[in-house]
């Protein structure tokens, strides 16, 4: 079990390293270095930068050194929590991001819970009543969920909300809480706004999960321990819910590894359509404005948080599987 944990941990660290490289590349990609951008920005606002000041900045950030040295310097600063300044906002990147990162996480987790909440019962039903009419209907709905890109779904729902109910769907807070500091009232307000984006994000992954649950459960339903439970006189629904469903739950829950990056990705686009205060709109804006430290940091943080989330869920999954807990595998 310890080897298993170490393996997962090693892979997580490797992934984080890979993400940091990609984020650094993104920061470096626009033509010219960021001091150029800095100078242009300042020039636009009317103040000029003296040549020696620019040179000092270049040395401070190691821009005169080979690229891998720059990467190392950047990484060391990031490791101490210094993500650099946002060119556009003139404030430290972390300050600009603020609550948006946590709201992204909250929405993603909510979406995963909704995905499971929909896929689990339907998957169970579809397996137990294989080839029944509802089985086909659910499969079809799942396919439609799969086929509609979630930003499109958001767009369509927003249009009909506006058209039919004159609702301005969007945002995560009511007007009075938008700028208010955190309070129970604000949290409750958030909770009320959460379901719609969560459902929109959830639908895309649901079809896949229904399929996984259905296939796993169909496999488990054929196993001898199910017949054993029946032979003991257990009512049919208790047979199914207690034994094969429990067994099928593990591979189902482990889908978080693929679901989490998927949902985080989706949240970026859906946030833009529904104008949610997540990092999505900020990322787009920073990319367009070539505010590269901000953009790179957002990509880095999203990636790292996703990896950490997957790692934690790996640990929890391991803990709830008695076979792994007993040291059977790995």
């Amino acid at each position: 079990m310890v080897t298993y944990i170490l393996q997962r941990l090693g892979l997580a660290l490797l992934t984080i390293l890979a993400i940091s490289v990609v984020s650094f590349v993104i920061i470096q990609l626009p033509p010219g270095d960021f001091v150029d951008t800095y100078i242009t920005n300042l020039a636009a606002s009317g103040s000029a930068v003296r040549a020696e000041e620019a040179a000092a900045l270049r040395i401070q950030y190691g821009l005169d050194q080979p690229i891998w040295v720059q990467y190392w310097k950047w990484l060391s600063r990031v490791a101490t929590g210094d993500f650099g300044m946002s060119m556009e906002w003139g404030r430290p990147v972390l300050e600009v991001i603020g609550d948006r990162l946590w709201l992204t996480i909250v929405i993603s987790i909510a979406a995963i819970l909704v995905t499971w909440g929909i896929a689990l019962p339907i998957g169970i039903y579809s397996a137990v009543r294989q080839y029944s009419i509802p089985d086909y209907v659910f499969t079809l709905i799942g396919f439609v969920g799969l086929a509609v890109p979630n930003f499109l779904l958001a767009l369509i729902i927003m249009y009909f909300g506006f058209k039919l109910f004159d609702l301005n769907i969007g945002g995560l807070f009511s007007a009075e809480y938008q700028l208010a500091p955190w309070s129970w009232g604000k949290i409750w307000d958030l909770t009320k706004h959460l379901p719609l984006p969560a459902v929109i994000l959830a639908l895309a992954g649901t079809a896949q999960l229904i399929r996984i649950m259905r296939a796993n459960l169909l496999d488990e339903l054929r196993r001898p321990y199910v017949t054993t439970a029946r032979a003991r006189g257990l009512p049919e629904w208790r047979v199914i819910m207690k034994y094969p469903v429990r067994a099928a739950l593990n591979p189902f829950a482990s889908t978080i590894g693929y679901l989490l990056p998927f949902v985080v990705s989706g949240s970026i686009v859906v946030s833009l359509v529904l104008s949610l205060p997540t990092v999505g709109p900020l990322l787009l804006r920073s990319l367009i404005a070539q505010d590269m430290f901000l953009a790179g940091t957002i990509v880095l943080l999203l990636g790292v948080l996703t990896v950490i989330g997957t790692f934690i869920s790996d640990l929890i999954l391991m803990w709830i599987d008695p076979r792994i807990r007993a040291g059977m595998h790995g």
Binding site: L11, L14, T15, A18, I19, V22, S23, I26, L29, P30, G257, Y258, P261, F262, V264, S265, G266, I268, V269, L283, L284, L287, I288, Q290, A295, G296, I298, V299, L302, G303, T306, V307, T310
Partner: peptide
Amino acid sequence: RVIEILRSIPTIPLWMGLAAA
């Protein structure tokens, strides 16, 4: 391992970063 790493990264922010350049 490379595949596992690629699959655990949210793709859209990555694409956005690359495409914006």
